[in-house]
Design a protein around this nucleic acid. Sequence first.
DNA 1: AGGACGATTAACT
DNA 2: GTTAATCGTCCTC
Length: 204
Amino acid sequence: MGARLSRAFFASPVLEVAPDLLGCVLTSGSVAVRITEVEAYQGLDDPASHAFRGPTPRTEVMFGPPGFLYVYFTYGMHWCANLVCGPDGTASAVLLRAGEVIGGADVARERRPACKADRDLARGPARLASALGLTGVDSGLDLCAPGSPLTVRSGSTVDTALVRNGPRVGIRVATERPWRFWLDGEPTVSTFRPGALRKRGDSE
DNA sequence: AGGACGATTAACT
DNA sequence: GTTAATCGTCCTC
């Protein structure tokens, strides 16, 4: 397997790091996931970013140095994992949207009992976080520290011609920014779901 | 103190 | 194709 990704790797501008993360491998215990789909969130310049309105206890880690893990809770039941990227203080991060489980599938299946096909073990951001066993207690982890329970390594070489990009999923603002990146032809890439499902206090 | 809503998923028809 | 589930976070009193 490849080398551990360095702090310097994560410190490049988030729009450069995001596509470069495709094909890299996340490892947590025995579970290993090859990244096939990500989204970039560009901190204070991006209305769709959790960091857009400034730091809060939840988003504090995004405002620190790159190479740290940001995990948030959503829809009352799901955790989603991000890698803080870009120069220190830019509050940018890459959402891990989908991946292929390439190791420890038995453990991943135990964590995702509702999952039928193996290709769905880490297909979708909350599924990916679940397969890796990531929750809020893991937010703030230094991914570059020796002994980190979650590591990110370069994978086998990715054909850059397979990298695609387009609109981000599930957001209601800044939908025109094509900051979702994925590997064409990968069965683990989540299906595109445009814009927001507005169901509750529907104001239109 | 109260309320709206979400970087979603699973289970339906 | 549709929709319920479920609660932390943040904004507005």
